[in-house]
Amino acid sequence: MAALPAYASTLDRIWHYGYRILCGLIFLFLIGPILVIIPLSFNAEPYFTFSREMLSLDPAGYSLRWYEEFFSSSTWLNAIKNSFLIGIASTVLATVLGTLAALGLSRPQMPFRGLIMSILISPMIVPLIISAAGMFFFYSSVNLSQTYLGVVLAHTALGIPFVVITVTATLSGFDQSLTRAAASLGASPSYSFFKVILPLVMPGVVSGALFAFITSFDEVVVVIFLSGVEQRTLPLQMWAGIREQISPTILAVATILVAMSILLLTVLELLRRRSERLRGISG
């Protein structure tokens, strides 16, 4: 796959460049749509396409009006506040419960490992509409629908598989002799957990937590069924906006969300490097 050798035939060359162009097009398909909406969110006109002024880079074609609209609308601001509130609460719950369970699951003595694992992962596999409908009936019957607690519990369940998967994956590469070394040096189990195990699996825990957060932050189906007017989240507001009458404010929100995912991606990448360095895989 490296550079083309000097003896390459014409056919080789055509294939080599053709293949790269094909891959370039697929990358464009992946990333293009996301990049297109960023300039469009600065459109001065209420249209979803590039105006003549925008194409000629005339400053008059650009404006911040959709961002102004977003930041001056109490509905949108309330929605983003709710999203963070629910996201953080369910992430904390999912991370604590999920990490504990992952520690148990990766012990060699764990009984019924396969069965328990597939139960814990099931919220990721069951179609969201079924989870949402089921939670709607059940949470209504215990008076939890249309409450923050209900949405948080639902989102915790949906985020847990990600925590369990990432933390067990980190623990599978964990060298058990380190805890034995700690114990032989006189550390109590809880001391060695906080001083030896936790620092080493921390990257896994944090990336699991990020997955859980983004799952909650991006989730809309369960929110459609469970939330009342008070618990409207950002995705629900977007969903309603797209279905009713799509306004360019949505593009401004979308751009903010893309910026957020870039931030998350950076954090994850830094974590991955740290984790590799800690395990001595080379930096």
């Binding site: 369970a101 764990m110 009984p111 328990i116 139960i119 939670m135 369940a157």
Partner: peptide, 20 residues
């Protein structure tokens, strides 16, 4: 090992499996 997994298992059973 079971004790560590138990809280989460109960949580998933009550908040997810039972509703489904």
């Amino acid at each position: 090992a079971l004790l560590l997994v138990l809280p989460l298992l109960l949580f998933i059973l009550v908040s997810f499996i039972v509703p489904v």
